[in-house]
Design a binder for these strands. Sequence first.
DNA 1: ACCGCACCCTGAGCGC
DNA 2: TGCGCTCAGGGTGCGG
Length: 291
Amino acid sequence: MPELPEVEVTRRKIAPKLVGRTIARVHTTGESYFFLTPPAELRRRLKGREFSALDRQGKYLLATLNDGSRLLLHLGMTGQLFVQGSSSLRLLSSTSRATLKPEAQTEFKPDGHTHLRLAFDDGGPEVWFRDVRKFGKVLWIAPGESDSRLDKLGVDALLATGDILWQASRKRTVAAKNLILDQSILAGVGNIYADESLFLSGVRPTRRAGKLTRAECDALAANIVRVMQRSIETGGSSISDYISPDGEDGAYQDERMAYARTGEPCKVCGTLIKRIVVGQRGTHFCPVCQK
DNA sequence: ACCGCACCCTGAGCGC
DNA sequence: TGCGCTCAGGGTGCGG
């Protein structure tokens, strides 16, 4: 699932394929939950525009167009933003993956889940946005306008500080995990990096936020920054559907200490990693290392 | 103000 | 072989 590191890796790799290029044609699927801007309007707004920048805020990608309008993209759970010509087994169904020899994999062809296709006037490779579950989002923002989704975001998680967590957590009864998942406090933390940073900080995910000590807030902020920077360096986590724009897998999943390690020994003390549900999310922790 | 929870979606995996 | 059920979860919105 794409969180800040995966979105940042995507941004870095896709930016050169967007910035400076002019959109010649836009193909979309039909109206759906996915299109916050109706597809017909989106096609009209984008055609003929040139991308001038690609930025990131939390888990959102924000492209600026040469008329001052902006295109907001969110990868949701299963969003895949990539360049035409990429080949990745993650673009195939698991049955296809199982029956297809790796050397036989062919270039991905747009399917019903490929909701947005941008073709450019230079005739080069198109940029495609595919999303099986449609939890992703596309929104066109008029020049000079803002959007409540962006306005509500807290400090980018790469800039997390103990002070932010300390201030935000006082008198709060929510679980510590829910606090760091709150995008209005820190923008970019998702389920994987929440579990990982809590593990590294020795804090149990269910601990009431208001009971965190100042030292624990400092440790948590430092570890959030650390796991995210490390994940960006390794290309992000390719755990379910995430692929980078060139189809390469990330490697951070190999460094996981807690997430999706249910029943496996803790890499520090050997105790079996436990799985519970916190705030509707699968949550993994070491019952001994995390207090 | 805060908190818990239902909902949006589709495919995988399981039991029968 | 196939059906029906459950699970996965980011973000939004609503009811308590």
